[in-house]
């Protein structure tokens, strides 16, 4: 097993040296090259974010220009005291809990299979990635038809086998699961591709050496593939958690947050309050709270994975 450690270290080594890879006198041209990006970034990301925080302290309205009347922390107090705010927050978290584990585990599983398949490799890669290319509206429409009660495909299949028909999108307890299934099918391809790329980076000689040492395929997966995929896995999980927390499209199109608000996500709550109820100040306060939450989750995760990397 010592051979493995020796072969791994040169892989990791270049990463640590990149930090010193800056050459004197290159900063200004580099900044100049980055300027188009930086200007747009400040204009369309940083600027609006700061404006959102500012707006959250005012009773702004969509029907008036300007910030409106100063309200201090009133919007925040209202948000923290609102049952709808907290239930939307929970729906977003619940959706993240339901989708993240399958999207990471299944993507890894299928990537391992697709990497091992000898013939038709391109077909399998494309097959798993293809749903991800579809726009959310198309995915939502397809799945609405599948889930339609009485006449939908899934209902027909379930009732043919003699089971009672589940009310996929109409039952408050089941609707979130149905949305999660749709999302897993739709976005699995992205994580799948990341894992495949990670698998390509593992040197083949490790497998050859280990099989000479008598390792079984299972041992190779557990002791070579998964440990060496650590960085990819960490990246996939962070990206997935953030993507799941940002959920909006599927719910907005498939259930409009229903039945009886049981799938209204945080972003839809912000949308409802800001655009339907025209209360942009309050919506900005709710967004700010959510922004801080996502930032906190991401930071905790990055810190955790950094610590993990240092163990190498």
């Amino acid at each position: 097993m010592t051979t493995i450690v020796e072969t791994v270290s040169p892989e990791v080594a270049p990463v640590t040296t990149t930090e010193r890879n800056t050459q004197p006198g290159h900063t200004r041209p580099a900044l100049l090259m980055l300027a188009p990006f930086l200007i747009l970034y400040v204009l369309f990301i940083i600027g609006p974010t700061l404006y959102m925080v500012l707006m959250s302290f005012f009773d702004g309205s969509l029907t008036e220009s300007g910030l409106g009347k100063f309200g201090g922390f009133g919007n925040y107090a209202e948000a923290f005291g609102s049952a709808d705010f907290w239930s939307s927050m929970w729906h977003t978290l619940w959706f993240t809990i339901l989708t993240t584990p399958p999207l990471v585990v299944l993507a890894l599983f299928f990537a391992l299979l697709a990497n091992r398949v000898a013939r038709g490799r391109a077909f399998f890669r494309l097959a798993f990635f293809l749903p991800y290319v579809l726009p959310s509206a198309v995915v939502a429409l397809v799945w609405i038809w599948l889930y339609t009660p009485e006449i939908g495909l899934l209902s027909k299949i379930v009732t043919t086998f003699g089971f009672a028909e589940p009310n996929w999108l109409g039952s408050p307890s089941l609707a979130m699961w149905s949305l999660a299934i749709t999302t897993v099918w739709w976005t699995l391809g992205f994580n799948f591709v990341l894992f495949l790329a990670g698998l390509q980076d593992i040197p083949r000689d490790l497998y050859e050496a280990s099989s000479i040492d008598g390792a079984t395929p299972w041992q190779q997966i557990w002791r070579i593939t998964i440990p060496l995929l650590n960085r990819t896995t960490a990246l996939v999980i962070v990206l997935q958690v953030i993507a799941s927390l940002k959920v909006f499209d599927q719910m907005y199109i498939m259930t409009s947050g229903g039945p009886n608000y049981s799938t209204r996500s945080m972003l839809q709550y912000v949308y409802d309050l800001g655009f339907t109820d025209l209360r942009t100040g309050y919506a900005a306060a709710a967004s700010t709270v959510f922004f801080v939450l996502v930032l906190a989750i991401s930071t905790v995760w990055v810190v955790l994975t950094r610590r993990q990397e240092q163990r190498f």
């Binding site: 039952s171 409009s256 947050g257 229903g258 039945p259 009886n260 339907t276 109820d277 025209l278």
Partner: peptide, 26 residues
């Protein structure tokens, strides 16, 4: 009312409760 009218939050609120009764959930 400022929150009422076609496609408004008010209609969503009322529809959610009525639909809940019709679906047997409330």
């Amino acid at each position: 009312g400022w929150y009422s009218g076609s496609g408004s939050d008010f209609e969503i609120l009322m529809s959610s409760a009525v639909a809940g009764v019709e679906a047997g959930q409330l």
